[in-house]
Design a protein around this nucleic acid. Sequence first.
DNA 1: GTTAATTCTGCGATTACCGCACATTCTTTG
DNA 2: CAAAGAATGTGCGGTAATCGCAGAATTAAC
Lengths: 153, 153
Amino acid sequence: MSSEGPVKLDATAKRIIELLQEDGRASYAAIAKAVGLSEAAARARVQKLLDSEIMQVVAVTDPTQVGFTRQAMIGIRTEGDPLQVGDRLAEVAEVDYVVTTAGSFDLLVEVVCEDDPHLLDVIRRVRELEGVVSSETFVYLKLNKQHYNWGTR
Amino acid sequence: MSSEGPVKLDATAKRIIELLQEDGRASYAAIAKAVGLSEAAARARVQKLLDSEIMQVVAVTDPTQVGFTRQAMIGIRTEGDPLQVGDRLAEVAEVDYVVTTAGSFDLLVEVVCEDDPHLLDVIRRVRELEGVVSSETFVYLKLNKQHYNWGTR
DNA sequence: GTTAATTCTGCGATTACCGCACATTCTTTG
DNA sequence: CAAAGAATGTGCGGTAATCGCAGAATTAAC
């Protein structure tokens, strides 16, 4: 769905991203002052970053706090093209995160479920997908840390 | 650092969260209209959700797009209290995500690094932590899907 | 049933946002 | 290298959103 080009970001773009990683609702005026641009220019740059899907500004929550009692990571071994299997997994609604990896799993998939029967159903559906050879599920017991302000380089 | 109580969220709070999961920069006026409150009340509720750390509004990016070429998930087996080890891991700057799990790993840890030597150094530091018995690293090759609008229940 | 605390509404006063015309800088390209 | 074209930035006026606060309404506690 997204065709990536390794976009080049200048120092101003990176500082804007870092500011919004700290506070996604920062005003354009505040951003402009922080990076030394006019308000209109700052606004244009934020819009560009959003439109190009380099960055998105969203609310993030601990799923367990908003009614999803079962979360899990599923390690998956595939046959055929892992990227294609990854695309198929990405279509599953309960899946919020898919990465292709090197190691004893080909894909790591995070799923968000309401309860145990729901998780069971998701695992069943995942294992039935074409190209999925085996899977191993890690049920989440506690979310210890979750942050997004890793900055830029 | 965060003392969790399973906070009870009413329907309005959940709808506000869902709206901001779609667009973290939605105006208070728009939120108010959507949930049927005055602008001031909507603003107060958003502030409360932010202050109580139930929700945070932030910019999220694909790390590879902003200069971090090496990302990985590290599966960790521990001895002693996994939660304590998790807390220690959470203090590592390059670690952005820590979950305690049930399964063949006790903890899953996501790390964001600039390059291979950086990743190597992080893995070394992680393995030296007290309580870490063994670790297995899954280097990310591609981020297939990443989304945050899983809604509420 | 009264009190206290929380939450909501309804405003002005202030600030931010948006769109647009024009200036500036950076890239092609002949 | 000069001119054309594309980005990117500035300034500003009109509109809309935000903020702070006083008082009403609702909810919880006793």
